[in-house]
Design a protein around this nucleic acid. Structure first.
Length: 334
DNA sequence: ACCATTTGACCCGG
DNA sequence: CCGGGTCAAATGGT
């Protein structure tokens, strides 16, 4: 929880900084956009984390239908924004960032995301895996021969699945599931009985490097093609906690303390940092958009980097994903 | 060449 | 046996 709170603070801080730079950013829509995304991402993380820890039903919004959707959705490949939108809304509504209503009670009012918990949703148990070998679930292990049994090929009790509903972009590519701030790699798709739309399976892109076992399933609802039901399973051991490194030079937090707490909450403040850097690298690509995340940021389309620099003055040199995750993973872990 | 998605096959639980 | 989850070869993009 501390971490989460710290993250919230970070988000607030970011928002504050954004506010401070508004004048400057006013002329740079792109920068403004990217900075807003940062803030949103930060809160998305919080939401995600909360969804993991809480068993509450976080309703961030209604599936919307005719709702304002995609403000940010620009054409294709920007699916990711769907998720953020709600957050932004929240920010706006709460005006004083300090008190996001993200917590439990806040129901709706945001936009289109609805977090829930698997337990109530039928899919839930899907991802459960046997408690054993984390990283290599199945055959990944290189020994075909000895492969007695993949072991984790099927569902077990997915006690930890969290599900949420997210509105899909109504324009542009509506097939792309919303981005939740993490980068996912699709590893399968299946037609599900009774569902008009196939279900897509994703796992954390960094699974290979850091054994992050987070997974998620994305499925469009029959009743509402514009709404996705996303089920998360497993926690991110890669990014969530994020690490300090990248943004080593966060400016003295306007928001007092809270931001950096030594060890434990290392994650938090840092989180943001890494987030930034990370996003910067990847140019913030939609999760669903596979190719999206590439290790060392490739596309520089987004001025994010600039933003980051401006805001954090962080020349944080080469922050490769590896660097980021390396440090991270140690601090986090369930 | 590398990496991500696609897609059919495989495997397992119910 | 069926449905769902995962694997991995094939394919495509950068």
């Amino acid at each position: 929880m501390d971490d989460i709170l710290a993250q919230v603070l970070n988000g607030c801080k970011l928002a504050g900084e954004l506010e401070g730079c508004l004048a400057t950013l006013a002329n740079q829509p792109q920068l403004l956009l990217s900075s807003c995304e940062k803030v949103v991402d930060t809160f998305n993380k919080v939401i995600y984390s909360l969804s993991l820890q809480t068993s509450q039903h976080l309703v961030l919004g209604e599936p919307l239908h005719g709702g304002p959707r995609l403000g940010l959705t620009m054409g294709e490949g920007s699916s990711s924004h769907g998720f953020m939108q709600p957050c932004m809304d929240v920010m706006n509504q709460e005006n004083e960032i300090g008190g996001l209503g993200i917590g439990g009670g806040s129901s709706r009012s945001m936009g289109m995301i609805e977090f829930g918990f698997s337990q109530s949703v039928e899919d839930v148990d899907v991802f459960g895996r046997r408690g054993e070998a984390p990283v290599t679930g199945g055959r990944i292990s290189d020994e075909p021969s000895s492969s007695h049994k993949p072991s984790s090929r099927k569902r077990k009790d997915g006690a930890g699945a969290r599900t949420m509903r997210v509105a899909a972009p109504r324009i542009g590519n509506t097939e792309i599931p919303p981005d939740d701030g993490y980068t996912w790699r699709k590893y399968g798709q299946k037609d599900i009985l009774g569902s008009k739309f196939p279900r897509s399976y994703y796992r954390c892109t960094h699974k290979n490097y850091y054994g992050c076992e987070a997974k998620k399933k994305v499925q469009r609802l029959n009743e509402d093609p514009y709404t996705y039901e996303v089920s998360y399973c497993g926690e991110h051991t890669c990014q969530t906690s994020t690490s300090p490194l990248v943004i080593s030079s966060l400016p003295p937090p306007p928001v007092t303390g809270a931001t950096l707490t030594p060890a434990t909450s290392l994650s938090t403040s840092i989180n943001l940092g890494s987030w930034f850097s990370r996003e910067v690298d990847s140019g913030r690509v939609p999760a669903a958009l596979p190719s999206s995340e590439t290790p060392a940021g490739r596309d520089g389309d987004y001025p994010v980097a600039d933003l980051a620099e401006v805001m954090f003055n962080s020349g944080s040199s080469g922050s490769s994903m590896d660097a980021i995750f390396n440090s991270k993973q140690e601090h986090w872990k369930g």
